[in-house]
Design a protein around this nucleic acid. Structure first.
Lengths: 194, 194
DNA sequence: GAGGTATATCAACACTGTGTCTAATAATTT
DNA sequence: AAATTATTAGACACAGTGTTGATATACCTC
């Protein structure tokens, strides 16, 4: 099933490059197939051979990223891992994002798809909830749900801010900060920080 | 400047109603002016007399909401208020949102505009930061920025969840939960909850 | 390398929505 | 009642969409 044809790989690469370029300039809703094809230097019919519309293109690119990220995070989420801490998962995710900074345009940029960002964050969700439950056995499911809704959205907000500042800080630094806020709330400001 | 003409008020009301209806069914990018006008039962030329395109319509509706909310929150944000706590502000905002649940479609629904939701949340931002600074004088500006990025996004995530569950809980309950998470992080699960 | 196959290109097509305009009609204000 | 303003209906050129068929070319297998 894997397409090994040089032509389609070149075509898809051209489309991908033109698409991410355009996404830096304008929101997805004002990107037409026509202008994308002109920017990519391909025929419009060729686009339709691979995608049905712009949103299908975005979805397919996001799926690619998702599998890439899952692959990159696999060692972190291995069942064998016993000394797995939320901090390690967070750091891993943040590290992945930093290594694929260009891709973040699609998810975290001003015209990004935050719903997909939420899915990325949720990659470590099960592990998270599991370890939370270990610590807070008497918490209700509803409480955990609301808490997760809060902190996952919070992490995305943190990531947006990080990207907006050019990802100047290190992934560890950001993950540590996220972890502190998640664990202690505003109290994180009182703890020692490097 | 206030338009007192019956006709334009009826027209705008029809547009608004048709628009929020459509937003419950599909994302804004796939709502055409034509179908909106048919749904509203008005002439297409009339739409152009008031708005330039669909996004201009959304912006203008959001501006209306924003001023409404500012008005509703004014007593809470008065300079005279001395015993103003973050919890009171949060409760006020959550209460406003609950009282305008239909409007939340535009901001918090699955096809909503989360950027605007962030602006709504930020209504109390200055007051927030001010009171935070009072408690944490040695916190750096950067830390406060990241913290605010986290918790404002987190509140939106919480609101989305709330809306998704039909706003079953009370505004006070939600505000209290938000406040606890913001103040104590995961630790909020250990404190007494009603 | 020659073969057949798959892919990209080009031009053309009907179709839908856009944005603007004019003349006519209806409601509102003065 | 007259003047102003808002809405309507129809028409227009224009742009983007999605599809089709014919042609050329790059690819992989043998």
């Amino acid at each position: 099933m894997k397409t090994s044809d040089h032509r389609v790989r070149v075509t898809k690469m051209l489309i991908r490059r033109a698409f991410t370029d355009l996404l830096r300039q304008k929101p997805i809703q004002s990107i037409s197939i026509k202008e994308l094809c002109i920017a990519a230097g391909i025929n419009r019919g060729t686009f339709y051979a691979h995608y049905t519309d712009i949103y299908d293109l975005r979805n397919k690119l996001e799926e690619e990223m998702m599998t890439d990220f899952q692959e990159a995070l696999r060692p972190l989420l291995e069942i064998g891992e016993k000394d797995l801490t939320p901090l390690k998962i967070t750091t891993g995710i943040f590290q992945c994002l930093k290594e694929n900074a260009d891709v973040c345009t699609i998810t975290l940029g001003p015209y990004g798809d935050r719903e997909f960002a939420a899915r990325l964050i949720s990659l470590g969700r099960e592990k998270y909830v599991e370890s939370y439950k270990r610590f807070f056995r008497d918490a209700t499911a509803k409480q955990l749900e609301y808490y997760y809704a809060f902190v996952s959205a919070g992490c995305i907000g943190l990531l947006e801010r990080w990207l907006a500042e050019g990802m100047a800080s290190s992934a560890e630094e950001m993950a540590d900060m996220a972890e502190r806020i998640m664990m202690h709330g505003i109290g994180f400001l009182q703890t020692d920080m490097t």
